[in-house]
Design a binder for these strands. Sequence first.
DNA 1: CAGGCCATGTAAGACGTTACATGATTTT
DNA 2: AAAATCATGTAACGTCTTACATGGCCTG
Lengths: 182, 182
Amino acid sequence: MWGPYYAAMSLRIAALGLLSEGPASGYDLLKHFEESMANVWPATQSQLYSELNKLSDGGLIEVSAIGPRGRKEYQITDDGRAELVRWVTSPQDDPPFRSAALLRVFLLGLIPAEQARTHLEGMAAHSDAEIARLSELRESLTCGRAVNPSDEAFFGLAALDYGLRLNAMQAQWARSVIDHLE
Amino acid sequence: MWGPYYAAMSLRIAALGLLSEGPASGYDLLKHFEESMANVWPATQSQLYSELNKLSDGGLIEVSAIGPRGRKEYQITDDGRAELVRWVTSPQDDPPFRSAALLRVFLLGLIPAEQARTHLEGMAAHSDAEIARLSELRESLTCGRAVNPSDEAFFGLAALDYGLRLNAMQAQWARSVIDHLE
DNA sequence: CAGGCCATGTAAGACGTTACATGATTTT
DNA sequence: AAAATCATGTAACGTCTTACATGGCCTG
């Protein structure tokens, strides 16, 4: 259906995933994006709108209502849900891991040691700030409640916890590299 | 020089970074890539060759020798080194963090709980395998030696250690999500 | 002289970023 | 009536993947 290219199609999937929770317009999705999936798969306004048109052309979503100001409300189709499940169960064709931050670490020998040290301190500080931001987000999402696996937000929070652990790891790592620098 | 677009340019940088260690051909770089930067910024043969031509056109590298079979050996220029340093000290315009694996976690509620559990076990197992692979790579790079900050390989090994910690974190995280699943 | 490795390249198309463009509706 | 917000779209361009193409050199 999508041709032989690009099994990944992650923004397509992110949009389908949000629509699987209920109908919404492109504008709605943009806002929902920011407080959820943008942390793991950011997208621009431009890209989202054109993706919605492609999804609609492909029959994975359809316009369910037209509102004021040309607002188009989309809903996911059965084909769309099938595609979502197919993607979720196909981790083997994810795009490869890439990290500009780690590439930079590789090249840190090119600048004076003191500057490299400052950069690593910046990485640690950035991670600390991310931990604060994500903790706040977590708090605002759970409101202190405990969350069960049956809860709709369960896996979103699991992803959030991944982010917390990732940043904790990164801060520790950066500080350990700094220690070895002396 | 590169126009207003795409401050990131990471493959360009990876190639420049390898060439900063000494002259090499595209073919050489491809092989060196696999055992070093491909872990943090993979690239295909096709992309690397065209990037070398662009770098050459831009004056950041130059052909230093022509060998048999049309082999072109490149070396980095002063402009190239300046660009490398500029990029290394500009972390602010890195491309944003993206993870298809985490996007999938977000959507794990779409499949039966037992299947989700199996997927998380697969993630943990994958991390264990990565740890084994990276440990082996580390061993083959250090040959048991201790590494000083003055060593050329120091930051490459720091990046490798990041990978080890990342996968350890991921395995722990996956198993903790599994625990909460019951 | 055949097979394997060395060595580079082109082309099509999907994905992502940036900038710009356009107009309707609601709020103050 | 002006300003803010809602709402969608186009165009140019850089990046990445996939597939295909081409030929020289070396070894058995």
